[in-house]
């Protein structure tokens, strides 16, 4: 069948809800937070939304990524300038006509490039660290294929039985598409996400695409080389031989075109 199958498992102590509408989700998060039940929650969305970030992280300091960026940029700038200065001082033979060995205008370019490069690399490191990537060990409830498409997920963890009941009551008011209490779930239902007529699901022939492209490319490259070589041997080489020059035994220098 042309579909993706997803086992909608929810652990004990966890409530999972799937929302179709953004505004109801925002209101639900707000109420859960006000009820002090959202101390361990995860909201997933197929796109970044400021309204979600605002309701979840209200009162929080901005993302600490900026400190990684600043550190990286400073490190890169200092390192770039130091690399150039130390190497020029270390090998003082490069003395361009009495000009200073450590030349600030000339070194600014690489200092700038190094600042940008290391700033970027540190930001990348910060992103990986803060997002805890690779995120293969994320809880099973958020690994729902619908949540990268058009649905929003709201998962609340570490709930006692009474808290879970209360959370269920609150969320039910906002009419989520799906609401599961892990404490009640005995057998996880299977969610079938059908893909449309062509769908996106690559069919058998499509998945061979890379193989086809690879084989075809290899054949074309080999044939082209054989073809070009034989063309060269039969025509260009003959022309060179006519000029008294054997390209196979002698390197071409300075320009084979001028060899007479």
């Amino acid at each position: 069948m042309n579909a993706v199958f997803y086992e909608n498992k929810v652990q004990k102590g966890t409530v999972k809800s799937v929302f179709e509408h953004l505004d109801t989700l925002v209101n639900a998060i707000d109420e859960i937070k006000k009820a002090k039940l959202g101390h361990d929650m995860i909201v997933t969305a197929p796109l970044p939304r400021h309204d979600l970030e605002h309701v979840i992280y209200e009162g929080h300091a901005p993302s600490p990524i900026r400190w990684f960026t600043l550190t990286g940029a400073l490190f890169g700038g200092i390192m770039g300038f130091a690399l150039q200065s130390i190497t020029h001082l270390n090998w003082a033979m490069v003395i361009p006509a009495g000009k200073p060995l450590v030349s600030i205008p000339a070194f600014l370019v690489i200092t700038f490039e190094s600042t940008v490069l290391w700033g970027c690399l540190f930001t990348l490191f910060g992103l990986v660290l803060m997002c805890r990537l690779p995120a293969s060990n994320l809880q099973v409830e958020v690994k729902d294929p619908r949540l990268s498409d058009d649905k929003f997920g709201f998962v609340i963890n570490s709930l006692k039985s009474s808290e879970a009941t209360k959370v269920m009551e609150i969320l039910r008011k906002y009419e989520p598409l799906e609401l599961i209490n892990g404490n009640d779930q005995e057998r996880p239902p299977q969610v079938i996400i059908p893909l449309d007529e062509r769908g996106f699901e690559p069919n058998e022939t499509d998945t061979d695409m890379l193989l086809k492209v690879g084989i075809m490319t290899t054949i074309i490259v080999i044939l082209s080389i054989i073809g070009v070589r034989s063309y060269f041997d039969n025509t260009l080489a003959d022309q060179l031989k006519d000029q008294g020059y054997n390209y196979k035994t002698k390197a071409v220098a300075p320009s084979y075109r001028n060899v007479k």
Binding site: I42, T44, P46, I56, R132, S136, N137, L138, V142, S148
Partner: peptide, 8 residues
Amino acid sequence: LGWRGTDR
């Protein structure tokens, strides 16, 4: 990288 689009 196991991206799930969580709020974090």
